[in-house]
Write a protein that binds this DNA or RNA. Structure first.
Lengths: 273, 273
DNA sequence: CTTTGGATTTTGGTTCAACCATTCTACTTT
DNA sequence: AAAGTAGAATGGTTGAACCAAAATCCAAAG
C-alpha cells in the first residue's frame, strides 16, 4: 500500500494526507481536534477517507498516543469520525453526524435546561413547518407510506400494545420530517422526538384515543394538498396531547425511577456528591 | 436512532432465523460515559455538583486513568461536565450544553451533509416561527433593544464596516430567537446562524442595502403586534438575501477555486479499496 | 483447482507508573 | 495582620507494554 508510513523520509506524496503541525497550547488534544476539523472544513479530508493510524498520527503531531486518542474521542463523539479496529482499520471521516445533536438535546433535557413544556411547545412550532413543507412535496407513494403507518398504529391499538402504538405515532412524525428533504429539520425534529419519546415513556400510558381519528382527518387534508387545514388539524391534535402530558407530569414528578435500563452494571455506580 | 440496518442479502448459508444485533459496547469508556449519563438523568447528580477526581473514579470503575479520561472527554465535549485544574478542581456537572449542538451543525455543514441551499431554507422556516412568537412576547424594552441594534447596523454601514454590519444583522436574529424564551429555538437558531455567518464570511461582501429599510418596516409591524405582516416582511427580506447568496455561490462554483470551495461530492472517494 | 483453517500483521482498546503545570490551602515569616 | 512560600490535590501528558479484533497470506486438505 502506498499509504504506509515508513520512518524513512520519502518525498512528499501526492496522497491527500495532510501535513499536520506540531501543537502548542495547553490541552494538546483540543489543538489536535481543531487541526483535524480545519483539514476537514478545507475539503482536504473528504468523507470516507481514512486518517493515518493512531501511532502514525501521534508521531506527526508530536504527542503521545494517549493524548492523540483523547482528541480522536472528541471527534468520534461529534460523529465526525468512525473508528474501526483491525488491519485496514483506523479513523474514517464519517458522513452522518446528527446523532450528536439528538444526544445534545437529550442531555439538555436531562440537565434541566429544557423543560417539558418548552419541549412540547417547540415541537408544535416545528411540526407546523414540517407539515406545511411535507404537504408541498409529498408524492402519492409518500401518502401511501403515511397511511400504512396509521393502519399499523390502529392495529397496535387493537392489540392493546401501547408501546408499539406510541412508536408508530412517533415514526409518523419522523416520516413527515424526512419529507421536507431538509437535513436540519430532520435532525432537529428527530432529536426533539427522541426526547419526547423518553418523556412520554416516563409518564406512562395516557389517553390518546383521539389521535387516530385526527390522523385520518389530517391525511384527508394532506392528500388534498390543503396545507393550512392539515397544519390546523395537526396542531389541534398536538395541543390536546400537550395538555394530556402536562396534566400527567405532576403525578410522575415524584418518582423518576421509570427508566427501563437493561444495561448490565458490572461496575460500582459512579455517583458521589 | 432510526438506523435501519440493511441485512446483507444473498447469504445463502444456513443462518439462524433470529436477527441478532451486533455486539457494540466492548469499549469500557462508552460504558462509563453511559453510566455517568444515567446518574445524571436520574437526578442523583445535580448541576454544579462535583464528580470524584480522575484517580478516585478510575478506581471506582476499575479501569485505568487513561480509559476514564476518554470517557470524561466524551462527556466534556457534550457540554455535560466542565473540568477544572488544581486543588479543589475536578469534573463539575455543567448547565449549558447547547454549544455541542451548534458545533454539530457546523460539522454537518463542513462535511457536506447540509448544503447551503438547505441551510438558508431551514433558516427562513425557523425564522418565521421565531418572529411570530417573539412578536407575541416582546415588551417595550425588547423593541427598544431591537431598534438599537438596527441603529448600530446603520452606523456600521455608514462607516463602511462590512464585518460589523454583518455581525449586527446576525445579532438581530439571535435577539429575536431569545425572545421566544424557548431554549430549543435559541439553540437551534444560534447554531444555524453560526453556520450561516461562516458561510457568509466565505462568500465575502454582497449587496444588502435593502436590509436596513426592510428592518425598519419590520419593526413597525413588530411593534404594532402585527405578526403576520412582520413575518411577511422578514421572509421577503430573507428570500432576497438567499437569492443573493445563491447567485454568489454559483459564481464561486464556476471558477476553479484554489481552496476547495464546495463539497457537493456525489461520488465519495472510496475509502482505500 | 478450490476451500479451509490457522499463523501473521495491522490497528484500536487498555493498563501502568511516572512526571509536569496549575490552583488552592495552610503555615511561616516579616 | 499582611505577605510570601511550601505543600498537597488535581487535571494534562508521557512512553512502553500488552490485549483483542480484523484483514491478509499461505499452506494443507479436499
Amino acid at each position: 500500500m502506498s499509504a504506509s508510513q515508513l520512518p524513512a523520509k520519502s518525498s512528499a506524496e501526492a496522497a491527500p494526507l495532510a501535513q499536520f503541525q506540531r501543537i502548542r497550547s495547553s490541552r494538546a488534544f483540543d489543538e489536535i481536534a481543531a487541526q483535524i476539523r480545519t483539514e476537514l472544513a478545507s475539503g482536504r479530508l473528504a468523507v470516507g477517507s481514512r486518517l493515518p493510524s493512531e501511532r502514525a498520527l501521534s508521531e506527526q503531531f508530536g504527542v503521545s498516543r494517549n493524548t492523540l486518542r483523547e482528541a480522536l474521542r472528541s471527534l468520534e463523539h461529534a460523529g465526525l469520525i468512525r473508528l474501526q479496529k483491525g488491519a485496514r482499520g483506523g479513523a474514517f471521516i464519517s458522513q452522518h453526524s446528527g446523532e450528536a445533536i439528538a444526544t445534545g438535546l437529550m442531555d439538555m433535557y436531562h440537565v434541566g435546561t429544557i423543560q417539558p413544556a418548552q419541549l412540547t411547545e417547540a415541537r408544535i412550532w416545528l411540526e407546523s413547518i414540517v407539515v406545511r413543507e411535507a404537504c408541498r412535496r409529498a408524492t402519492a407513494a409518500d401518502i401511501d407510506m403515511l397511511n400504512r403507518n396509521i393502519d399499523e398504529a390502529q392495529e397496535a391499538r387493537r392489540r392493546g400494545d401501547f408501546a408499539s402504538r406510541a412508536e408508530r405515532h412517533i415514526e409518523f412524525h419522523r416520516m413527515l420530517a424526512r419529507l421536507t428533504d431538509n437535513p436540519i429539520m430532520v435532525i432537529v425534529m428527530n432529536g426533539v422526538l427522541d426526547v419526547l419519546a423518553h418523556f412520554v415513556q416516563r409518564i406512562g400510558e395516557y389517553d390518546n384515543s383521539f389521535v387516530l381519528p385526527s390522523r385520518r382527518r389530517f391525511m384527508e387534508h394532506f392528500a388534498a394538498g390543503d396545507a393550512d387545514a392539515a397544519v390546523a388539524e395537526m396542531e389541534s391534535c398536538l395541543k390536546r396531547l400537550q395538555r394530556s402530558y402536562m396534566s400527567r407530569i405532576q403525578a410522575a414528578e415524584g418518582a423518576p425511577a421509570a427508566k427501563a435500563a437493561s444495561r448490565a452494571r458490572r461496575n460500582p455506580p459512579a455517583a458521589q456528591r
